[in-house]
């Protein structure tokens, strides 16, 4: 992990056209950015392509980085924009109603397949959890992923998403409620066991 001073030095060198300085700058953030995009798209190939596009845009737009926020926040913002544009282009952004419809369908399917022996920590629970996460509406999923998976604070997530901390807080709260509802059959079963 590079400190703030090193980061700014690499940014300045990359601005002057030092490709290797830029590569060193993004090395720490490549995988987290990939994971964020993967969470949003659910597809490895798309995640790889969008990660590359994010890095290329960051390089060509380095002059716009004002260093008021951290470089990683700025990079996440580009990644989020790229991903949301991609989802919009491909018509894959889900609305809340679609999500709720999906919950009903998936829940019934998973409920039939579940066995009483399975515990809360079972494999099926995780599969259900992955599906529940994937089915969250895009904006809720983004806030949740940035904070819970990527470890950003509400303040940093707000900077990335261009909204208030209150909005981030509320979206994560709602996302947790949706996940809990989606995981209700597993939670109930676990309590019985």
């Amino acid at each position: 992990m590079i400190d703030r001073e090193q980061e700014l030095d690499l940014v300045n060198r990359a601005r002057r056209g030092e490709v290797e300085a830029f590569m060193a700058l993004i090395r720490t953030y490549q995988v987290p950015i990939y994971r964020l995009i993967y969470r949003m798209t659910g597809n490895r190939e798309d995640a790889a392509d969008l990660m590359q596009e994010t890095m290329l845009k960051a390089y060509t737009g380095l002059k716009k980085f004002k260093a008021r926020s951290g470089f990683h926040t700025w990079l996440y913002r580009i990644a989020v924009n790229e991903t949301l544009n991609f989802l919009q282009r491909s018509g894959r952004e889900k609305g809340k109603m679609e999500y709720l419809d999906e919950i009903d369908t998936t829940e019934s399917g998973l409920a039939v397949a579940a066995s009483p022996e399975e515990t809360l920590m079972g494999e099926e629970f995780r599969t259900g959890l992955e599906q529940a996460l994937a089915g969250l509406p895009a904006d809720y999923k983004l806030a949740f992923t940035l904070v819970v998976f990527q470890g950003l604070s509400h303040s940093e997530a707000a900077q990335v998403l261009g909204c208030s901390e209150g909005t981030v807080s509320w979206k994560i709260h709602e996302a947790r409620k949706m996940l809990r509802e989606k995981m209700r059959p597993y939670l109930d079963r676990a309590r019985e066991v």
Binding site: V31, A48, L120, L129, V148, R176, R180, M183
Partner: peptide
Amino acid sequence: ELKGIEAEIRKLPAVEPEN
């Protein structure tokens, strides 16, 4: 319940770029 869900989320396999 929320803590239980998030404990499981942290156990989800981390996705890595293949190449």
